[in-house]
């Protein structure tokens, strides 16, 4: 069950088309998976539409330039069914197939090879173009990411399975936004492990044990 959602202000910004692109992509993918946020967005859009079309503006008489534009528009052909490009709906790791939310399918083809990070942890980088870099991270059962905090923010969406991080337990569809106030240690005890999609804007900063040695290089792995 989904218990972690984007906060309402971010949903509003998303619905208005005003949030940062990386965030918009994450929220869009979450909304694909979350009926509750779908409903929220529908309501927010209806509100925004109401504001936009509220009759507070003075209606000026239509000038000829405007009428000219309208007549040009009405001469345009009707667009037939919009073609939709078929993207890969799944990504694969070791013979396991994971279905992606619609918003992320576009990036299946931009996903690099899986590499083993440490222990039971796998990573596949995703090139989001100008939006930045993302990663699919797969934790096998018992897999854990060393305890870390963030210099910037880390957005995570659970695509499949469950994991916990010492702060809470996360299920499929859960969206979390972490920043440098959060220190966490993600690990999965789910039988089928856990696949997450994550975008960080700065490398992770490891806070405990031997993993601290990774800090100088963490930009190589976790960004």
């Amino acid at each position: 069950m989904i218990s972690f959602h984007p906060n309402f202000a971010d949903l509003q910004r998303f619905s208005a088309g005003n949030c940062e692109t990386a965030m918009a992509l994450m929220i869009s993918a979450h909304v694909d998976m979350c009926p509750q946020c779908q409903q929220d967005c529908i309501e927010i859009q209806a509100e925004l539409a109401k504001e936009l079309f509220s009759p507070q503006t003075v209606i000026e008489p239509l000038d000829s330039q405007y009428l000219d534009m309208v007549s040009k528009i009405t001469e345009l052909p009707i667009v037939d069914n919009l073609e939709s490009i078929a993207n890969n709906a799944t990504i694969e790791l070791d013979g396991k197939f994971f279905e992606l939310p619609r918003a992320l399918r576009k990036y299946a083809k931009n996903t690099g090879n899986w590499s083993r990070l440490v222990g039971k942890l796998w990573q596949a980088p995703v090139d989001l173009g100008d939006i930045g870099k993302a990663n699919f991270i797969y934790m096998e059962k018992g897999g854990r990411v060393p305890e870390h905090t963030h210099k910037g923010t880390e957005m995570t969406l659970v695509i499949d399975g469950q994991y916990g991080d010492g702060i809470a337990e996360y299920d499929c569809g859960d969206f979390t936004l972490m920043n440098n106030r959060h220190k966490h240690l993600p690990h999965s005890e789910a039988d089928d492990g856990c696949l997450v999609f994550t975008i960080v804007d700065q490398p992770l900063h490891f806070t405990a044990g031997i993993a601290r040695l990774l800090n100088p290089f963490s930009h190589l792995f976790f960004k």
Binding site: L25, S28, V31, D32, C41, R102, A103, G129, I131
Partner: peptide, 14 residues
């Protein structure tokens, strides 16, 4: 922005 992400990718269902 050259990346081909467009609005339809973000808000189709809605």
């Amino acid at each position: 922005r050259k990346e081909d992400l467009c609005s339809d990718d973000l808000w189709p269902i809605l």
